[in-house]
Simulated assay, not measured.
Amino acid sequence: MSKKISLADWQAQLGASTGAEPTAPAHADSDLVYSTASGRINSKAAPETLGTAYADGALRVRRETKGRGGKTVLTISGITGSAEQLNALCSELKKKCACGGAVKDGVIEIQGDKRDQVTAVLQQKGYQVKQAGG
């Protein structure tokens, strides 16, 4: 039967046998949130990107009414970027079109049928735009 020892004693034995200070495994650093030795660990995670780009690089402006109670909504897909970038672009489009909208799952939704205005604004910003759907 093995003898139970404390974590501090085990670390001391580990450090004495290798001749160095015990360190945590490299894979544990990514999951580490708090350490008693150094306090809260701030991870430097990359900003999360939303949306998926199409192979041709164009944005799709699509008019949809299905599942929305008969209301017309424009969806702009094919944009990739952080949540802040998508929200900023959505805000600009809402101001130019004088309507409401939102960003959902990386797709910008603009209320109403403002395809011509949205397409013009996106082309001014340097995007390649294709009108899709009905």
Rank of each mutant, 00 (worst) to 15 (best):
R63E: 08
Q85K: 14
R40P: 04
N42T: 14
Q111H: 09
G39L: 07
P22N: 03
S38K: 11
S91E: 13
S38C: 04
T72P: 11
K44N: 12
A53F: 09
A58C: 08
H27L: 00
R40F: 13
L93T: 10
Q117L: 11
A28L: 15
V118C: 01
V103F: 04
I76R: 01
S91M: 06
L74Y: 05
T36A: 09
Y34W: 15
Q111T: 14
K3R: 13
G69D: 03
L93R: 08
E84H: 05
V33A: 12
K71T: 12
K104E: 10
G69C: 09
G39A: 09
V118Q: 05
T72Y: 01
K3H: 10
K114F: 05
L14W: 07
G100Y: 01
T36R: 11
A55W: 03
K44C: 00
L86E: 05
G51P: 09
D9T: 14
K66Y: 11
Y34T: 10
G57P: 08
T65I: 08
Q11E: 14
G39H: 08
P47W: 01
A12C: 02
K71I: 10
V73T: 09
Q13H: 03
I110L: 00
Q13R: 11
I110C: 01
Y54I: 00
K3P: 01
Q85Y: 03
K104M: 06
K114W: 01
A16H: 07
G78S: 06
T65F: 04
K44A: 08
A12D: 13
G57I: 07
I110D: 04
Y54W: 08
K96W: 01
G81Q: 12
G78Q: 07
T49K: 14
S38F: 12
T80F: 04
N87F: 02
K94L: 00
K94P: 02
G69S: 08
L74G: 05
D116S: 12
D116V: 09
L50F: 13
K94C: 13
P47K: 13
R40T: 13
Y34M: 08
V107D: 04
T36I: 11
T72F: 00
D105P: 00
S82R: 10
G19Y: 07
P22I: 10
D56W: 06
L7G: 07
I76A: 00
L7C: 06
Y34D: 03
A102L: 08
